[in-house]
Simulated scan of single mutants.
Amino acid sequence: MNPNVGKLDRGLRILIGLLLISQVFVGLHTPWGWLGVIPLATGLVGWCGLYTVLGIRTCPLNKKT
Rank of each mutant, 00 (worst) to 15 (best):
A41Y: 04
I16R: 12
I16V: 15
P39S: 04
S22W: 03
I38Y: 06
V24L: 07
F25T: 03
G43A: 09
G17D: 07
F25S: 02
L35K: 09
W34K: 00
L20N: 03
Q23I: 09
Q23P: 06
G36P: 00
V26M: 03
L28Y: 05
L28N: 12
F25D: 01
A41K: 06
V26P: 00
L40T: 14
P31W: 06
I21L: 11
L35A: 13
G27D: 02
P39R: 10
L44I: 10
L20C: 11
L19V: 12
L28Q: 10
I38D: 02
G33I: 01
Q23Y: 07
Q23C: 06
V45N: 14
L18K: 08
G46S: 10
T42C: 12
I38M: 14
S22R: 02
P31S: 13
L20D: 05
L44K: 14
P31N: 10
L40D: 07
F25L: 08
L44W: 12
V37D: 05
A41Q: 03
Q23E: 14
T42S: 13
W32C: 12
G27K: 02
V26E: 00
I16L: 15
L20G: 09
I38G: 10
L40C: 05
G17L: 08
V26H: 00
V45W: 13
V45L: 15
G27C: 02
I21T: 07
T42Y: 15
L40H: 14
L44Y: 11
L19C: 11
G27V: 06
A41W: 11
W47F: 12
V24M: 06
H29Q: 09
S22V: 01
G36C: 01
G17F: 10
G46H: 10
V26N: 00
G36L: 02
L35Q: 13
G17N: 09
P39F: 05
T42P: 09
G33R: 00
G27P: 05
V26G: 00
G17C: 10
S22P: 01
V45M: 14
G17K: 09
V24Y: 07
L18F: 06
G27N: 08
A41I: 07
G27W: 05
V37N: 07
P39Q: 08
V26A: 04
L40M: 14
W47K: 15
I16C: 15
H29E: 05
L44S: 08
H29A: 12
G17S: 12
G33C: 03
W32N: 12
W34Y: 15
W32M: 13
L35I: 15
